[in-house]
């Protein structure tokens, strides 16, 4: 219930109406959105119980390692009510045709299987916010100083996920396990998404804000 309360307000893509549609506009819109989402994600992380008690170095390592998983999971959850469309933001819903026309098809194809997976599980908001926190704490960063402290946070989030399973899904004792088993696909999807943005960065045609660049470079 704490994670539900600290769930961030939605933010909007606000594509620039003066720029003609096309690859550059679509990618500029997404990079700008991602930069603002990152600010929100960093603020959100601080509200995960126990996160702010970790050392600043460990907080940084976890975010640098998992930010794209958190970002992808948010897009996926927003897209659950849609068919073949990705809700990057409420004012930026992209179907396959739009994705093809605006150079977002790679991203589209990478993220949709994860949407299908969570649809099949009928994942609920309580589960989603818990999984998002688990993705952050379970980032497998190689640079964690206090491994035990991170493990304790993982354990309490894992326990929350199991409690949800045993109270809301008595019909399926494996519910929490099924949700945890989606995390490899999330990591794979985030890796493909990062790859997409790395190549955009290398091409240099799309402006990227400093925080987004800083976080991309941390994953390089």
């Amino acid at each position: 219930s704490h994670l539900l309360v600290v769930e961030p307000e939605k933010i909007y893509a606000m594509p620039d109406p003066t720029v003609p549609d096309g690859d550059i506009k679509a990618l500029t819109t997404l990079c700008d959105l991602a930069d603002r989402e990152l600010v929100v994600i960093i603020g959100w992380a601080k509200h995960i119980p126990g996160f702010s008690s970790l050392s600043l170095t460990d907080q940084m390592s976890l975010l640098q390692s998992a930010w794209m998983e958190v970002l992808v999971l948010s897009i996926v959850f927003r897209s659950l009510a849609f068919e073949g469309e990705l809700v990057y933001a409420d004012d930026y819903v992209v179907d396959e045709e739009h994705a093809r026309l605006s150079g977002l098809l790679d991203l589209h194809v990478a993220i949709l299987p994860l949407v299908q997976r969570y649809k099949k599980l009928q994942v609920e908001k309580e589960e989603f916010v818990t999984l998002k926190a688990i993705a952050l704490l379970n980032s497998d960063s190689m640079h964690i100083e206090d491994v035990d402290a991170v493990q304790r946070l993982q354990d309490s989030l894992h326990e929350a996920l199991q409690d949800l399973g045993s109270s809301q899904h008595t019909e399926d004792p494996q519910r929490a396990g099924k949700l945890l088993m989606t995390l490899p696909l999330l990591r794979q999807t985030a890796a493909r998404t990062l790859q997409h943005f790395f190549s955009i960065k290398v091409q240099g045609k799309v402006p990227m804000h400093k925080l987004f660049l800083e976080m991309l470079e941390a994953k390089a």
Partner: peptide
């Protein structure tokens, strides 16, 4: 960590 100035600053902000 010098390279990650913005993340560092945002985490230190109390809000």
């Amino acid at each position: 960590k010098e390279k990650h100035k913005i993340l560092h600053r945002l985490l230190q902000n109390s809000t």
